[in-house]
Lab assay of single mutants.
Amino acid sequence: AQASVVANQLIPINTYLTLVMMRSEVVTPVGIPAEDIPRLVSMQVNRAVPLGTTLMPDMVKGYA
């Protein structure tokens, strides 16, 4: 199964992502692939992302 990117903490709206904020986990539904974690660093979330939430492409500015 493919691992997705999951929030490792509460990520406030407009926060620039860093490695410590994200982890990879096999979840349903599938979100942003874990292999894209390096690409996500320094990208901004466009909403608050609670701890344990799967990151979806529409949550990250400029990802989709």
Rank of each mutant, 00 (worst) to 15 (best):
V41N: 05
G62I: 04
N46P: 03
E35S: 10
V30K: 04
M22L: 07
R47T: 13
Q2W: 08
L19S: 06
V6N: 02
Y63W: 13
D36S: 12
P33E: 06
I37W: 02
A64V: 06
G31Y: 02
N8G: 09
E25Y: 07
M22S: 00
Y16A: 15
M21W: 03
Y63H: 04
I32P: 00
T54D: 01
K61E: 08
E35F: 06
V20D: 07
M43P: 00
N8Y: 09
Y63Q: 04
D36C: 06
T18E: 11
G52M: 08
V26R: 03
A48P: 06
E25H: 06
M21I: 03
D36L: 06
P33S: 10
Y16P: 14
G52T: 03
N14A: 09
S24M: 10
I11F: 02
D36R: 06
I37M: 15
M21K: 08
D58C: 05
L19D: 03
V30E: 15
P50W: 07
Q2G: 14
Y63L: 04
A7S: 14
I13K: 09
S42F: 10
A48Q: 14
D58M: 08
V41A: 06
V5K: 01
S4A: 03
P33V: 08
L17T: 00
K61R: 14
A1F: 09
D36N: 12
L40R: 00
I11R: 00
V49D: 01
V26H: 07
Y63F: 10
L55A: 00
D58V: 13
L19A: 15
T28V: 12
T54P: 07
T54N: 02
S24H: 09
A34N: 06
V41D: 05
R39W: 06
P12E: 14
A34S: 15
L40I: 12
Q2K: 04
A1H: 06
P33R: 14
K61F: 09
V49C: 04
T28H: 07
S42A: 12
V41H: 07
A64G: 13
S24E: 07
G62E: 13
L17K: 00
L17H: 00
E35I: 06
R39M: 10
V45N: 05
E25K: 04
T18G: 07
T18W: 03
K61T: 14
S24R: 07
M56K: 09
R47P: 02
R47S: 10
V49A: 11
V41R: 06
P29R: 03
L40G: 01
R47L: 12
A34Y: 12
L17R: 00
T54I: 11
I32C: 03
S4I: 01
I13C: 04
T15V: 14
T53C: 04
P57N: 06
L55Q: 00
A1S: 10
G62K: 06
P12S: 07
Y16I: 06
A48Y: 14
K61G: 08
L17D: 00
V6P: 01
P29I: 12
R23E: 03
T54C: 03
L40V: 10
L19F: 12
G52A: 11
P57G: 08
A34I: 06
D36W: 12
A1Q: 07
S4H: 01
S24N: 13
T18K: 03
P33M: 09
A64Y: 03
V26S: 09
L40Q: 01
R23S: 05
L19R: 06
M56G: 06
I37H: 03
V20R: 08
Q44K: 07
I32M: 04
R39P: 03
V49M: 04
G62C: 05
P50F: 14
V5I: 12
V6Y: 02
N14C: 04
I32S: 01
V20I: 11
M59W: 13
G31D: 01
S4W: 02
L55C: 02
R39V: 05
T54E: 02
S4E: 01
R23Y: 15
D36F: 13
L55S: 00
T15F: 07
T15A: 13
M21P: 00
G52S: 11
Q9S: 10
E25D: 14
L10C: 14
D36A: 10
N46I: 14
N46V: 10
N8T: 11
A48H: 06
Y16S: 10
S24P: 11
T15D: 08
D58Y: 11
S4D: 01
P12L: 14
L51R: 07
Q2H: 09
P50M: 09
P50G: 07
N14D: 13
N46H: 13
M59V: 11
R23N: 04
T28M: 09
T53S: 13
L17C: 02
T54W: 02
L55I: 13
Y16F: 12
G31W: 02
G62P: 06
M22Y: 02
T18V: 05
L40H: 00
P50I: 07
M43C: 03
V30N: 09
L51E: 13
A3D: 14
T53R: 12
M22V: 08
I13G: 11
V6Q: 05
E25S: 07
A48S: 14
T15L: 03
P57H: 10
S24K: 06
A34V: 10
V6D: 01
V45P: 03
V27I: 10
Y16R: 09
Q44F: 07
V5Y: 01
R47W: 05
V45A: 07
R47M: 14
P12A: 13
Y16V: 14
T18P: 00
D58F: 12
V60S: 01
Y63R: 03
V49I: 15
